[in-house]
Design a protein around this nucleic acid. Structure first.
Lengths: 269, 269
DNA sequence: CATTCAATG
DNA sequence: CATTTAATG
């Protein structure tokens, strides 16, 4: 294979997604790595063909709380190592972070907490952000020492810039587009700070979106009133190898098996 | 009209029933009085055509607890009076009993609590039974003094005899067929005690069933593994006027808009 | 196995 | 507006 293809999608409940069309999508993907978020199930609650699809190695990081969060990684080849959670006790068993080592690459599935202004859930989101940025820096350092690139895929629950959501003016005081959240993501992407690259934006610097999430309310999907909150965030030399990126809006169009669409990127090896 | 037809059905959530075929059934019924149980909604939560179907006078007795219990009466003519609850403070606002006066008749919709052996819910069921039998006696006396018959329709959550459920042996220790529950219903029907008559059984003394409830689990409906727990219980001289009784199994067959079927009886006037 | 609800998203 | 769970049935 000349390319490594990675796709990431928030499935909004893998049991529901599987009832509505997730498996045909998975059967059709050419990706080598699939990152899932909001699995909202333990492996034992899933039908076998969903839990362990043929041809994939699967790792789950479910949340302690039943029916909440949960991330997973599907890889065509067996990872050399997998690690659940990151360097933070509070979020260790929250089903929000899972990473796997493949040759020359550490790939992660991330589900950053969603917040709501003025509630404890926003405080939790901010605690996660505060702990996660130093971890990303640490991860990049460790990976570099081992000659590994890093790719953190998932639902970051933050739109970075005005081009990343349809109604940015109306959302300046809503969680997901707050100044402090945007600044935090800016730090992740600052070469002098986090040092990572937003792969899709690097390939499409002048595009609106492409959005990856549309509310189920109203006609958000039909009107493309969406947000770009699902990212592939890579070390710069990996990001430089990205040759194609797209959001599979059609994959969730007819069937609508999630309110998010897969974000797919191909990297030269 | 030469006859008065009364039908009673536990709808297991009127909102769900209305999504699945309750309204066509209502449009087709020839009944003069419809008794509903397990409405599980307040009037304001119902679509107008469900809450106030044309041609009917409707009275609701919702439970205080949202989404629980709830009984209603639909009558072609306006009742002379309606009363919510019976002579017991604990169950006044529990959405389990509603009665209406029509000329010569007091008709009631009853949803007796369902229990589970060894739980507080069984205790509650027994408290209801203990309070309700004296009320029935009192009601019969008052009605007689006014020249009124009494008809209490609804889900009594008790199968009286072995012929009233498919698997009576296996259910002798389950709520709904406990010896003390059967004995209590026996007292309701004892001429020297409650003094009421089980109208459907009086018309069909030698029949198995007819069952009026089938669990959604397994193939209970297809195998007719049911219970007769929905009754029309009448003062004897009204019961003597019953000319036809049947359980509308077909009404909930194709569509299955409830796990109970309507119990319909026609009385000579 | 179905209906509600509440919390989450 | 959709997904879960929990309690209820």
């Amino acid at each position: 294979m000349q390319q490594l293809t990675v796709t990431s999608v928030n499935v909004n409940g893998l049991r529901a997604a599987a009832r509505k069309g997730y498996l045909p999508w998975l059967a059709g993907t050419t990706a080598d790595v699939v990152c899932l978020q909001e699995v909202r199930a333990e492996e034992a609650q899933l039908p076998a063909e969903v839990a362990r699809p043929a041809g994939w190695h699967v790792t789950y990081a479910p949340a302690e709380a039943k029916g909440r969060a949960g991330v997973a990684l599907l890889t065509r080849r067996e990872p050399d190592a997998v690690r659940i959670g990151f360097d933070c006790a509070e979020f260790k068993a929250s089903g929000r972070y899972l990473e796997a080592d493949l040759p020359g690459l550490t790939v992660a599935s991330l589900y950053l907490p969603s917040g709501e202004v003025g509630t404890e859930r926003q405080d939790e989101k901010e605690r996660f952000m505060a702990a996660f940025l130093p971890y990303l820096v640490d991860l990049r350092g460790r990976a570099a020492a081992e000659g590994r690139e890093v790719l953190v895929c998932g639902d970051w629950n933050i739109a970075h810039r005005e081009a990343d959501l349809r109604n940015w003016r109306a959302n300046r005081t809503n969680s997901g587009f707050l100044p402090e959240e945007r600044a935090w993501l800016g730090r992740v992407l600052d070469p002098a700070d986090g040092g990572y690259t937003d792969v899709v934006r690097a390939l499409h610097p002048d595009q609106e979106g492409p959005y990856s999430w549309w509310s189920y309310r109203g006609r958000a999907f039909d009107n493309d009133t969406g947000w770009r909150i699902d990212y592939q965030i890579a070390t710069p030399s990996l990001a430089a190898r990205a040759v194609k990126a797209h959001v599979e809006r059609a994959a969730t169009h007819a069937e609508r098996w999630s309110d998010h669409a897969p974000v797919t990127v191909s990297y030269e090896r």
